[in-house]
């Protein structure tokens, strides 16, 4: 998101504090002094991760600090879920398994580690899926479950939700 704040000492810290207060995670802060000298404000771009549903609260807190939010950028993939698959992963077309998640458009496989101990024995893989919302993650897991059933793979899901 792009923020506009008064160009005074302590203002940047005041703008960042509410982010951690709502459980957000700051990924990058871009601070450019290119604004016209006539204005007394400072533009700052912040890349951050927020738990679902906290954006409104953050905007409210920022307003209280006297910070204007100029622009809110696009949502990225915020939910992550790591699972383990066991079975004949290559023989059952691993790239198709991955595609079935990726073609949803809202969730994607971002990491895959594969161990194949011997040609005839089952292989094991750790798969990480990311999605924009919790519901999309649930949908991706449902898809993976049905693919696993079809291909006789064992899926080991995490104890806790994404």
């Amino acid at each position: 998101m792009k923020l506009e704040m008064r160009d005074q000492p302590g203002q940047l810290v005041a703008a960042l504090q509410p982010i951690s207060a709502v459980g957000g995670n700051i990924i990058a802060v871009i601070h450019q002094r290119e604004t016209p000298a006539a204005t007394e404000t400072l533009d700052v771009q912040i890349v951050l991760e927020l738990p679902e549903g906290r954006l409104e609260k953050l905007l409210e807190l920022l307003r209280e600090q006297g910070v204007n939010v100029v622009r809110i950028g696009e949502e990225r993939l915020l939910y992550e879920c790591t699972m383990i698959m066991i079975g004949h992963l290559m023989h059952t077309d691993l790239s198709d398994t991955v595609d079935r998640i990726d073609t949803t458009g809202s969730a994607e496989v971002t990491e895959l580690s594969l161990v194949m101990p011997a040609i005839s024995s089952p292989s094991s893989a750790r798969i990480t899926i990311r999605s924009t919302t919790r519901d999309e993650m649930k949908r991706a897991i449902r898809i993976l479950r049905s693919v696993a059933e079809q291909k006789h793979l064992l899926i080991i899901e995490p104890l806790e939700d994404a």
Binding site: S113, S123, R126, I156
Partner: peptide, 13 residues
């Protein structure tokens, strides 16, 4: 059906 490899992949995390 669990494999030692699956446990190792879990261990890595």
């Amino acid at each position: 059906l669990l494999t030692p490899e699956a446990l190792r992949l879990a261990e890595d995390q």
